[in-house]
Design a binder for these strands. Sequence first.
DNA 1: ATATGATTTAACCATGTGGTCAAATGTAAT
DNA 2: ATTACATTTGACCACATGGTTAAATCATAT
Lengths: 201, 201
Amino acid sequence: MTIAGENTEKSILIAAREVFIAKGFEGARMQEIADHAGINKALLHYYFRSKEKLFEAVFSEVASNLFPAMKQMLEADLQFKEKITMFIRIYLKALEENPFIPAFILNTLNTNPDSFLKYIKKAGLNPKLLQKQIDDEVARGIIRAIKAEHLMVNIIAMCIFPFAARPIVQNIFDMNNDEYQTYLESRQTEIVDFVLKSITV
Amino acid sequence: MTIAGENTEKSILIAAREVFIAKGFEGARMQEIADHAGINKALLHYYFRSKEKLFEAVFSEVASNLFPAMKQMLEADLQFKEKITMFIRIYLKALEENPFIPAFILNTLNTNPDSFLKYIKKAGLNPKLLQKQIDDEVARGIIRAIKAEHLMVNIIAMCIFPFAARPIVQNIFDMNNDEYQTYLESRQTEIVDFVLKSITV
DNA sequence: ATATGATTTAACCATGTGGTCAAATGTAAT
DNA sequence: ATTACATTTGACCACATGGTTAAATCATAT
């Protein structure tokens, strides 16, 4: 592939990412993606062969970026509470940089529940590591007993929701955009506090 | 409208709800909805005029059911902790009965962020009621200070996430369907505990 | 300059999609 | 039985959509 070809392929992926995230697979139009990329529509098929394969390329990139923070947390050699705090910080930072990813992922999951299986397996997460650390902390009387499945889901849910459901949250609490940004910025402290206060003995 | 006409309209709405929830607005096909309803496709236009109006009818019904539990909680004359417990119980029960609604709502929000505005206004939620009750409980030394926006979002997020992101959660923790059902059934107790332990002084 | 392969273009294609329309059929009142 | 209106049907429509194709153009090596 030539340099020009690589640039074209990159342009397509960038444009496709934007349009698929905004419109979902079904709502995205190949012509729209081509327009965003500033290319002729036929090139989409030359480089990616079909809409599905293009979507898969975009989804693969997004999905592959989902688990490093989680894996890092599970495997980090840190004090438990430090680990939780680190995870929340890293996760929220990633969400701030890609605020539309949760909706994109959840949308794709809804129509294609198996879309994630291979990425989860590839990520090699081991939640048992967290359960072991929880058990150690419980034995030392530092935190109360809680299952890893619940703790992790609670944390991730609280991180993601204000991004995924932004219009609802924003309107229920009658916040303008600046106020919502401030709210998002306070989420890290609030979530860390909420979690640590809940589990600390 | 005749009885037959009312039955036809109902059949359409039921079928449309299923298909729109499964496929989203863009992915749903009018012919598929007609097949699900067991009718001729032209009837969709006779009764609802367009795909958009049919979707709006379905969305309106779903959205209107979203806030009664929340409003009930905000306005209930209950002890604070009872109120929280009641809300989680009612909310999770609603989610169990309609496990695909969160994904449907979030998906629609993503492509049309304003879709909810009128329903939120119509619901007449008043989060300040909750903030006032929180402040009273804080003054009595029963719970710690926390903002209503954070508390409510945390609760709703923890209730919704295992439904909206089921395939991810199920696969990360390597649960089969029975195990996941058991997990969902334990969420109520876990969330209530998590929240009350977090806010109780 | 020529040949070869890669990339791009613009026109075109087959099918799908939401929607239209007029005739057929059903219902109820007279 | 007739009339008027409501509902349903089945054929059809205009346009959109993802995809195809062959020619044009570009890039590189000889």
